[in-house]
């Protein structure tokens, strides 16, 4: 939003060219405290306190209890980093992220550009693509598992595949080739792409139309216009969306948990477990809250590092 910046700058400066001076505006401070107070207190109690407690637990042996009292230092961290299945879950999530982030990004940008360029029925397409974002992962996982990708000849994916001569596949338990990835990826894309499309649309619509008019006068084609105007001016949107998609990918849980859940037996027979499912099993299944907390901090560290690197590369928050 380059055009908005100068206005804001002039407004914040006192009239008459006097040097800016900070004076306590008690009304504003009072309003600030009143408006943000409940949120800050809520965050403090329900988030930061819980995070601090969990950090404490991660250095304790806490089996079947939430009370620290048996200090074990870095044992829980060491256990996790030595554990094959935790390490493979970390590798799995890195691979999953490396795949899903660019795909989500490109698809939602393409969808946004497409929707933005249609003349009629834009609201219809926008709503249609966004609707899946309102469906919960649990509900969508059930639909994917029970209706679309079940292992029966009557399942929708198998019925469609049958038209092309494909054999009936047990999608979720096929490991050679690993067809379950197809189920996971389509589910996530269906749920997420619409939401990011809306964010991209908002970014697209803040690009001043006169730039496109000037480009058209200069004879720039559609691809050239996209590369030289649309994409560079979307930089802030791009960076923000990349970060959101990254974090969402690292936190993948719902579809993995629900697609492979076998009811009472839980997730033991899942072909892949992302870190959060591993930690859910450790903390809530095995009641090993020390290991569960330690794993949460390892995962958080990974997300923070990746986000910082990615933010630096993509220029998130950089001034124009």
């Amino acid at each position: 939003m380059p055009s908005a910046t100068p206005t804001r700058r002039t407004a914040s400066r006192p009239a008459g060219g006097a040097p800016p001076r900070r004076r306590a505006n008690w009304r504003a401070i009072g309003a600030f405290a009143l408006l943000t107070g409940p949120m800050v207190i809520g965050l403090g109690v329900f988030k930061y306190l819980a995070i601090g407690w969990s950090f404490l637990l991660s250095f304790n042996e806490a089996r079947g209890t939430l009370t620290p009292g048996h200090w074990v230092g870095f044992d829980n961290y060491a256990f996790l980093l030595k554990d094959d299945s935790f390490r493979s879950s970390l590798w799995m999530i890195v691979g999953f992220t490396a795949f899903i982030v660019p795909v989500t990004f490109v698809l939602s940008l393409a969808l946004a550009v497409g929707v933005n360029s249609v003349r009629r029925g834009r609201a219809f397409f926008r709503t249609t693509f966004l609707l899946p974002a309102a469906v919960s992962y649990v509900a969508a996982s059930l639909i994917w598992k029970m209706a679309l990708f079940n292992g029966l000849p009557s399942g929708i994916a198998n019925a469609l595949g049958g038209l092309f001569g494909m054999h009936v596949q047990p999608w979720l338990s096929s490991t050679d080739p690993p067809l379950y990835w197809f189920v996971i990826v389509t589910l996530r894309l269906w749920l997420q792409v619409g939401l990011y499309m809306i964010l991209f649309l908002a970014g697209l619509q803040s690009i001043p139309p006169h730039l496109y008019e000037a480009a058209a006068l200069d004879g720039a084609g559609r691809w050239k216009t996209f590369r030289s105007i649309t994409f560079p001016l979307l930089r802030h949107t791009n960076a923000a969306i990349l970060m959101l998609v990254f974090i969402a990918a690292f936190q993948a849980f719902d579809e993995f948990f629900n697609l492979f859940n076998t009811g009472q037996a839980g997730n033991a027979s899942a072909p892949v477990r992302p870190p959060l499912v591993y930690l859910y099993d450790s903390a809530l299944g095995d009641q090993n809250y020390g290991v569960g907390s330690a794993g949460a901090f390892i995962l958080t560290a990974l997300i923070v590092v990746v986000t910082l690197v990615q933010g630096r590369l993509a220029g998130f928050g950089r001034k124009d």
Binding site: R122, A123, R126, T127, L130, L131, A133, A134, V135, S136, V138, A139, L142, I198, L201, Q205
Partner: peptide
């Protein structure tokens, strides 16, 4: 181009309720 918030909510809330119910 602004989304009509009311139309948007009316459409999506039905799905939300369905999701929560399941």
């Amino acid at each position: 181009n602004a989304l009509s918030r009311r139309n948007f909510l009316a459409g999506t809330s039905v799905l939300f309720v369905a999701g929560v119910a399941t």
